[in-house]
Design a binder for these strands. Structure first.
Lengths: 313, 313
DNA sequence: TCTTGCTTTGAAACGCGTTTCATATCATAC
DNA sequence: GTATGATATGAAACGCGTTTCAAAGCAAGA
């Protein structure tokens, strides 16, 4: 395999000149350009990208941490990130954690090792402190409200979204509203809980712990929720569901049992994925693809400016 | 930032020795090991991974080409690949093509540039020839039947799966069976078409072009299918659907119109994703996660053996 | 005592493109 | 005619870890 020095020799120029030709830089005469290009073609030259990375000190790779790939929520986020990345000539390195801390640490280590230029964490497990300590090695962008922290983020204002949804249901006459979320802990869940409790106290409504369902991610989890509901003495009349998938499961399961939505149970879902349209589930749009795109753009910007930045969607 | 030479100097040893310590190689005395480790800690040494890549000539990165991320089919495939990769200390570089040839070419270029050690193409656009020409630069694994080609693959035997499903429906008494697929072209679709035509001629059944639906990928496409069906004079009595998502859309839409599955239209779907269980859709399991894992393992094996290999799932 | 074969250790070469800096040339400006 | 600034070009330094090869030390076996 020919390297840049071989090409330089064969074209009768210096390596600097070859480098200039490769990178389309000015200050090379037309003859030399063609001489170099010819030599490159003749010897089927391909620059060693790892040498470029070493020399330049960056890789044009961007790490993306997600818990799992088979979930539409993260699928859409990735969709946005990946498209934006490719448009800017960046590539995405996927780090799937299954919510294992060690895997997330590997991603942070990649940043430390300069294997990736920046890191986007779509769902975090490590503590703020840990992540903060890696900030020195490169930009880290989170997809959750980090306004109180030193880390940049593009996030969805789940407090607002939840409040909006709750108010909507309240206006429809619902006084016993429950909700179903994914992880119990985490910034997003905390904010939703806060919105929920604020809503309850605003309207002097009682808090019912068993109207809250946690760890519901997939369609089939919706079936479980319905089963639990049916066993209850005092059922909620409406449910906020933080995933169209789970909502689809709930709605399917309910209808199957001869009950009706929203008469027997009103459902208000989030994300606005195709399935909710098909199943006529009321859903609040969360612009995930756009968020993905912003996350990426922020990774670029933060890198250049070395400053913290947070955007709410 | 301290580099390996700094550490060598500070620990009073040679760079070779430091390298040995870093890589846990034998033939270093206990004292020197600790001296080096101390120096590394003291100066917060981190090896430059790009120098490692350059030196070793590989990156422990594996490229994965998919058309889009927001589809459960590819989500599951990625899930399998990503998990297997992480277990083997490889990282996944995601190349999302949106079925644009140029994007797929970028992936092939990455292989040529040695930016990735191997490439898995989950859904191909380029011709066999093009892909074959990149085979010299590293292992390429496809997820489609490549038994007639020079390229390795782990693939699902869609001919068999389709035949199985058709026979099942035939036994149930169906004589007018249609199908819905994703892309019209491609090995997988061709094989299904072959299975379908073979089935028809085996039972001397007529071919009805409008009983075939193409370019159906997502839930909402199922609704379209139902609309088309309802406009038909001679409707099929059963439909093979190559995606649980689309099947879910079809079933939902049909039930909504007061018709019943399977009485008015029998549905046989593929993949066996949670949604089909929730909606009680008959589905033929396609082990996508396992396929993903095999694809990865094959990428490793082929690399070592430099030989073609194909596995059917 | 001598040979054989590990165990240790390090100098130097290797992988390879980018970038800085100095030098040289040529043309336009005053 | 000289100064000024752009254009053109290359030598050498830089980024940095791995690996080969030679050499030295030491112990067990003959």
């Amino acid at each position: 395999m020919a390297n840049i020095r071989d090409i330089a020799r064969l074209a009768g120029v210096s390596v600097t000149t070859v480098s200039r030709v490769i990178n389309n830089q000015p200050y090379v005469s037309a003859e030399k350009v063609s001489a170099v290009k010819e030599a490159m073609k003749k010897y089927n030259y391909h620059r060693n990208i790892n040498a470029v990375h070493l020399s330049r000190g960056k890789t044009h790779l961007i790490g993306v941490v997600i818990p799992f790939s088979n979930h539409p929520y993260f699928g859409l986020l990735i969709e946005g990130i990946a498209n934006a990345a490719l448009d800017h000539n960046y590539k995405v390195v996927l780090i799937q954690t299954n919510y294992e801390k060690a895997k997330e640490m590997e991603a942070l280590k990649m940043l430390e090792d300069k294997q990736i230029d920046a890191l986007i964490i779509c769902s975090r497990i490590s503590s703020w402190d840990v992540i903060e300590s890696y900030l020195a090695h490169g930009p880290i962008i989170l997809c959750e409200d980090s306004r109180n922290e030193k880390i940049s983020s593009t996030f969805i204002d789940h407090y607002k979204a939840f409040t909006l949804a709750l108010d909507y249901l309240y206006e429809k006459g619902h006084r016993q509203i429950g909700y179903s979320i994914g992880r119990q802990t985490g910034t997003n869940s905390t904010q939703r809980e806060r919105a929920y409790k604020d809503f309850l106290s605003k309207h002097s409504l009682p808090f019912e712990i068993n109207h809250i369902f946690t760890d519901r991610f997939h369609v089939e989890d919706g079936v479980d929720v319905v089963e639990s509901l049916l066993k209850m003495q005092h059922r909620p009349t409406a449910l906020l569901v933080t995933s169209d998938q789970v909502a689809a499961g709930i709605v399917t399961s309910i209808r199957e049992r001869g009950l009706s939505v929203p008469k027997d149970l009103a459902i208000m879902s989030f994300d606005n994925q195709p399935i909710s349209k098909v199943m006529h589930i009321t859903t609040l749009e969360i612009p995930l693809v756009v968020t993905g795109k912003k996350l990426f753009q922020q990774a670029l910007t933060v890198k250049k400016l070395h400053m913290k930045k947070s955007t709410s969607v």
